[in-house]
Design a protein around this nucleic acid. Structure first.
Lengths: 190, 190
DNA sequence: GTCTATATGAAGATAGAC
DNA sequence: GTCTATCTTCATATAGAC
């Protein structure tokens, strides 16, 4: 069916653009790059997406779907909020090569778009929102008497700062060292 | 003298570009932008700087000079390392409007250049180096028995993460809240 | 040193043949 | 649905008159 084919090509473009966006940034990523990476002829991309902004929106939507799947999996895999929070804090260690080379896919994009593309920032920021809602829920369960929203934001800040410095210096040992500090902090809350 | 005039115009371009770079990012900042902001005709910029990369290098050099002046002033103004470290941690509060709108001038640039302009990252990163050397010295004096280098890096991570989130959400109260957490951490070290 | 005109290339986006 | 050719705009950079 034509409908299915169209959707398949769309997904192929989105997945290829996801990596491209992470590796080059939004403004440095061109339609030619997208065409090359997705193996879809240059002009055809416009059949699936009207503008570059539309491609970005589709990639963000895709990323958030993937995130939700991941968080759902963590919810069943890990029985305690502490284990779940540690799993989150462990992302930079698991994604060591990528983080030290390209930074955080969410943070680097928000930083770029926040300069002079505020409308796009609002779309991209939903990635943070998705994590923050989940983190808040975990902290609420972990320490019901404390402000879960602030704790969630604080943990996000720690991981984002780590990503920025890890990328700037391409330093893997930094990631491992700071990860332990974050784990110790989480333990200290209980 | 012609020599002085040239140097004056150079400085005018550098100062205008400093703001532009912060507000738009390196790749989104054009020569036309630089010409407009510095009130130097478009073609003339090339008389003072051969390439865009050269302008960037000059701006970074200028920023680092300014930083050194600032740190020297802090060294005399504040008598204890704790006061100095708190002054550093207080930058995001003092620069509240800018940080919540454009993020950190060093961090956002490093994040951008780190994607696919590694040669330029090496130049830009010297901004971090300048702070890290100074921070390390303060921590060495504050807590001689602890690893000053790691503490300096940790403080830098905290402020950089804060800048990323503050910009993404344009949230001023976040900056104030996290600043207190950082101050409490510094106090706890002594 | 100053400025205008322009070369050259690549970007986003569109038209229209197949 | 697919693909090529092309429009338009804006970028970096240069040439050369003044």
């Amino acid at each position: 069916m034509a409908r299915d084919k169209t959707e398949k090509v769309r997904q192929k473009i989105i997945k290829a653009t996801d990596d491209l966006l992470y590796h080059k940034g939004f403004n440095q990523m061109s339609f030619s790059d997208i065409a090359d990476a997705s193996n879809v002829p240059r002009g055809n991309i416009y059949y699936y997406f009207k503008t570059k902004d539309d491609v970005l929106a589709a990639v963000i939507e895709y990323r958030i779907e993937q995130m939700r799947l991941m968080l759902d999996a963590w919810n069943t895999e890990f029985k305690t909020p502490l284990e779940r929070l540690k799993r989150y804090a462990n992302i930079p260690v698991i994604e060591l090569a990528n983080i030290t080379r390209y930074g955080c896919p969410m943070g680097s994009l928000n930083t770029e778009l926040g300069k002079s593309q505020q409308e796009l920032l609002l779309i991209s920021r939903k990635q943070y929102d998705t994590f923050l809602v989940w983190l808040k829920k975990q902290f609420k369960e972990l320490v019901p008497d404390q402000d879960a929203k602030n704790l969630a934001m604080h943990l996000l800040i720690l991981t984002q700062g780590l990503a920025v410095l890890a990328q700037s210096y391409g330093d893997k040992s930094l990631v491992r060292r700071e990860n332990k500090i974050i784990e110790n902090w989480l333990d200290s809350l209980v």
